[in-house]
């Protein structure tokens, strides 16, 4: 931690100490967004190298960790932009629709939520649960199960908190498809979390 406190200008130790100090943290940040260890490692390495190049611009006002995370954020968005030039994100082909087993299949109330399988009450204050490590692991597992295109859209909108317009630009997708993809990603995650967490909680 000492190096982080020394501020701008004179470095006491080489930048390779960043790897031990911040590597795991940046790696986890990248992994939950990119969902692939090799790609996450590459992007973290790119981040360190970019940081080294622009070290003179680091003013020491924020912590080294925050500064590096900021660079990583840009690298992740760049990665998605590059990726959208290789594969098309602007298609709904093969993407699962909201699962129909949550809805009544027949009868007067067809296509309304099924009484047994529809959404349940998550309680008055789920925010307390979000800090829980096990909950976060469940959530990460659910995100890992999203199809690639849905995950990309969801990650940029909800984790990187880009505006809807910017998500469309980065991934070269139409707004119509953006709404459909966000809906499907959220629907799948909602169901996954409800079934793997809230319906399993005792009481």
């Amino acid at each position: 931690m000492d190096q982080a406190e020394t501020g701008s200008g004179d470095r006491l130790t080489g930048p390779e100490t960043w790897v031990d100090q911040h590597g795991d943290c940046l790696f986890r940040y990248a992994l939950v967004r990119l969902r692939d260890e090799t790609i996450a490692e590459e992007i973290v390495q790119e981040t360190f190298l970019a940081a080294l190049k622009s070290y003179s611009a680091f003013d020491g006002k924020s912590s080294e960790r925050t500064w590096l995370t900021g660079i990583l954020k840009h690298k992740i968005i760049d990665y998605f932009r590059r990726r959208s030039r290789q594969v098309t994100f602007d298609s709904l082909d093969g993407l699962p629709a909201e699962s129909s087993d949550l809805f009544q299949q027949s009868g007067e109330w067809v296509d309304h939520f099924d009484f047994d399988r529809g959404p349940i009450d998550w309680g008055a204050n789920p925010a307390r649960i979000f800090e829980n490590n096990q909950f976060q692991e469940s959530l990460q597992r659910c995100i890992m199960h999203l199809p690639d295109r849905l995950s990309a859209v969801f990650t940029l909108r909800e984790m990187e908190e880009l505006s809807s317009d910017d998500v469309c630009k980065v991934l070269s997708i139409s707004t119509t498809n953006l709404w459909v993809m966000l809906h499907r990603a959220r629907a799948q995650l909602r169901k996954c979390i409800e079934y793997n967490w809230f319906r399993k909680m005792p009481g």
């Binding site: 967004r33 998550w122 789920p126 959220r186």
Partner: peptide, 24 residues
């Protein structure tokens, strides 16, 4: 709630508590 949960999870740049977190 999901939106808040994802933001809480994805913005945590704290040191990992348990040793079994993904590491480099």
């Amino acid at each position: 709630a999901l939106r808040n949960a994802v933001q809480t999870m994805s913005n945590s740049t704290q040191e990992p508590d348990p040793t079994d977190q993904p590491r480099l």
